[in-house]
């Protein structure tokens, strides 16, 4: 998209661009550069604070970049609390959520997209309307249910629900299923392939980008989640990174360099995933807003 517009913009500029328009372009770029710098300052400040010595954090005027970066801050921050264990817990929960959501949501979405059955429209409306229910309304009864099941202080409340479909992902995948022509499936059916085999070998490969988007979103959701771990995990050995980070802030409230070092580590995996899969993020977000 941007390559195309850039390609067409260049020759036009070479010919003759009115002065007013040229000034306007310069203004746009200046504004964009200033704004993106402004958006990056908080992250820059996070990294730079993480590398400062305890005294440098509080000097005035502020030091933008430490003279002698204290890489030891990371080691100190990560060893005071078992962040490695927290990271493993979080990763385990996130991976199970990805598997659960991809499997259950693609099944449900395919059901809504391809099969005619009584009540389909109403059920789909019901599915969409669940997105409007604030999670707080369900919190207390869900907690009581998990409590009665003996699931408190286990990863089960954080993982099991993922296997039962999530409205937003079902909606997203259904949109994609609707765009693929049914001829391939019909041909396979004539060749004698069963419905489930058609689904796994012919249909799913065609919507890989959408499945990737669902995988990324559910990873992000599980990785960033705070409320559920806060409610359901009591034992420190079961904490996730987000719980660990609040615990860390609570016990080191003025050691901002260490707190920032821990924060950098907690956001790093999301940053990497974001840069690798940005187009899926953009796609998914766009689908929510414009097709909804």
């Amino acid at each position: 998209m941007s390559a195309v517009s850039a390609g067409t913009a260049v020759p036009v500029r070479r010919k003759r661009m009115p002065v007013a328009q040229r000034v306007y372009r310069v203004f746009i770029y200046a504004l964009l550069t200033a704004l993106s710098a402004l958006f990056l300052v908080p992250l820059f400040w996070m990294v730079s604070s993480a590398l400062k010595s305890s005294s440098e954090v509080f000097v005035f005027p502020p030091v933008w970049w430490p003279k002698h970066p204290e890489w030891g801050n990371f080691k100190q921050a990560l060893t005071t609390l078992p962040f490695g264990l927290y990271a493993l817990n979080t990763l385990l929960i996130a991976v199970v959520n990805v598997v659960g959501n991809v499997v259950s949501c693609s099944l449900v979405a395919y059901g809504f997209a391809r099969f005619r059955f009584p009540g389909r429209r109403i059920l789909f409306m019901l599915l969409l309307s669940t997105m409007m229910i604030p999670s707080q309304v369900l919190l207390v009864p869900q907690f009581i249910m998990y409590h009665d099941l003996g699931w408190i202080n286990t990863f089960l409340p954080l993982t099991v629900p993922a296997f039962f479909g999530s409205a937003f992902y079902v909606f997203l995948l259904r949109q994609f299923f609707m765009t693929i022509p049914p001829e391939l499936e019909e041909a396979a059916r004539i060749d004698g392939a069963g419905t489930f085999r058609i689904f796994t070998t012919i249909v799913l490969p065609q919507i890989k980008p959408a499945l990737t988007a669902v995988a990324i979103f559910s990873f992000q959701g599980a990785w960033n989640d705070f409320l559920s771990p806060l409610l359901y995990l009591n034992d420190q050995a079961k904490y996730t990174l987000q719980l660990g980070l609040t615990q860390f802030q609570g016990s080191f409230h003025t050691d901002w360099n260490l707190i920032m070092a821990a924060s950098v580590v907690v956001i790093l995996p999301m940053l990497i995933i974001f840069f690798l899969g940005q187009r899926y993020f953009v796609q998914g977000i766009t689908m929510t807003g414009t097709k909804g």
């Binding site: 704004l35 993106s36 958006f39 908080p42 992250l43 992000q220 990785w223 960033n224 705070f226 990174l241 987000q242 980070l245 609040t246 924060s263 907690v266 956001i267 999301m270 940053l271 995933i273 974001f274 940005q278 993020f281 953009v282 977000i285």
Partner: peptide, 11 residues
């Protein structure tokens, strides 16, 4: 501009 939205709210 989108970057801050993907970061964990706790961090």
């Amino acid at each position: 501009f989108y970057l801050p939205c993907v970061l964990p709210p706790v961090a």
